[in-house]
């Protein structure tokens, strides 16, 4: 199957800081790709690059290509890129509290997306909005459409933001930590809804999250980023069952699980380095229990590993 979104060896800089280095990702229709890593690993920046939004934050692609449905987005005009976002790519942000315009009614904010991108009439747009709200299991959709953002709870607002992302009938949804600001019971609902959308509509979802539980629950493939580089990319089952990269292993080990004895949670020592202090060799080596002289000196290449790829000098041998 051909990829809907394909990043090949994309590098990104902001000012002097080289923040992403040769990131390659593929996302197919009907699939969910999870992008994981700690804060500062480059997850959000990768998403910005995928949507062609880097100029907004003063970033630029210094190498590689981003293709959407086979087209190089660097070769597009600004107008084409704008049409791409909203029409073919929907975006769901982390904070639903600030993603909505406080002085516009809910319905009007969703209507405008389909009127702009699908050219629908006022009435058709509203009908579509109500239909979307109902699909997102919002009770009394008509009443909610007439409400103001401040009248809604956080979980409800996030569903509205998802409705806005869907209103242009996109092929790809990019969701940046869509449930981080929400309570767990609400998070469960939203994740459920996102998963169902992908399966029912054949959408593709790029899901940025720090929550490995969410990744295990709905993702098909997982890309693990560390300090601007891809550490590992694989299907979800091997990522959790037999993580190849020590960083992936450490990330999973950070999550308290049922029946875990107290004292068995250790975290990852240290912190993600800033872009101007990236260490030489493997960037994870100062925090890695397996680091050797080779790791300190030489950048590990991305090598095939089972159904995926990983960049480590000490890949577990059995799966190679």
């Amino acid at each position: 199957m051909s990829a809907l979104l394909e990043l090949s060896e994309v590098s990104v800089s902001i000012g002097r800081a080289a923040l992403l280095e040769r990131i390659s990702l593929r996302l197919e229709p009907g699939h969910i790709l999870g992008l994981v890593g700690e804060s500062g690993s480059g997850k959000s920046l990768t998403a910005m690059a995928a949507m062609g939004l880097l100029p907004l934050i003063g970033g630029r692609v210094t190498g590689g290509t981003v293709r959407f449905d086979g087209q190089d987005i660097a070769a597009m005009t600004d107008g084409q890129r704008r049409a791409l976002r909203g029409r073919r790519i929907g975006f769901v942000t982390q904070n639903p509290m600030t993603a909505l315009d406080p002085v516009q009614r809910i319905g009007a904010q969703i209507d405008v997306v389909s009127r702009l991108h699908l050219g629908l009439s006022r009435q058709a747009a509203r009908a579509r909005t109500l239909d979307l709200l109902t699909q997102l299991r919002i009770p009394e959709a008509a009443a909610v459409a007439e409400a103001w953002p401040h009248q809604l709870s956080g979980g409800m607002k996030q569903r509205i933001v998802i409705a806005m992302a869907l209103a242009g009938d996109p092929d790809l949804i990019v969701a940046d930590e869509p449930t981080t600001a929400l309570d767990v019971t609400v998070q469960a609902q939203i994740i459920q809804i996102l998963g169902a959308l992908v399966r029912e509509r054949g959408l593709a979802l790029l899901l940025i999250t720090h929550d490995m539980g969410v990744v295990a629950q709905i993702c098909d493939r997982v890309a693990v980023l560390y300090a601007g580089r891809l550490a590992e990319e694989n299907a979800v089952d091997p990522i959790f069952a037999a993580p190849a990269h020590p960083y992936t292993r450490a990330l999973i080990g950070c999550i308290p699980q049922e029946g875990m004895a107290r004292g068995s949670l250790h975290g990852i020592p240290g912190a993600v380095p800033g872009a101007l202090q990236f260490p030489p060799g493997c960037r994870f080596h100062p925090r890695c229990p397996q680091a050797s002289a080779l790791c300190r000196a030489t950048v590990p290449p991305l090598t095939p590993h089972g159904a995926g790829i990983a960049a480590c000098h000490h890949l577990s041998v059995e799966a190679r």
């Binding site: 767990v184 994740i191 929550d211 969410v214 990744v215 295990a216 089952d237 959790f240 069952a241 699980q257």
Partner: peptide
Amino acid sequence: SGFAPDPA
């Protein structure tokens, strides 16, 4: 509502 980090 919590998800275990285990696709199984």
